[in-house]
Design a protein around this nucleic acid. Structure first.
Length: 100
DNA sequence: GTGTTGACATGCT
DNA sequence: AAGCATGCCAACA
């Protein structure tokens, strides 16, 4: 399997600064695999909770929260708000997106 | 080896 | 503006 890709994704997600968010496609693209947006999401979902990975900073390209309505989503919103990200309902302004 | 699934993206209606 | 349809790729059964 692509350990490289997995590692790259971890790197990218871990490199997202607080107060900023990045889309799955964005992360995948930065990792060097533009078509693996889904795989990024898959990695997030399969990730252990104890992981120090800021998965809550990874959202959809539209700024929508895929986990909206679920406990994890609430936690995600809570954390993002705590980090200074403006979360309107189940969405985030594009201005909060990570700009490399 | 085949078929289905998924924390997505993009385009068209 | 919102919703529907297609594409993409890797893991799982």
């Amino acid at each position: 399997m692509n350990q490289e890709f997995t590692d790259a994704v971890y790197q990218i997600v871990g490199a997202i600064p607080a107060g900023r968010v990045a889309s799955y496609g964005q992360v995948a693209r930065q990792a060097g695999y533009p078509r693996h947006a889904r795989f990024v999401g898959r990695l997030m979902s399969r990730l252990p909770e104890g992981s120090a990975l800021p998965w809550h900073r990874v959202i959809r390209g539209d700024g929508g929260l895929p986990l909206a309505g679920t406990p994890s989503g609430e936690i995600q919103i809570q954390r993002l708000s705590d980090e200074g990200v403006t979360v309107l309902g189940n969405r985030v302004p594009k201005s909060c997106f990570w700009q490399p």
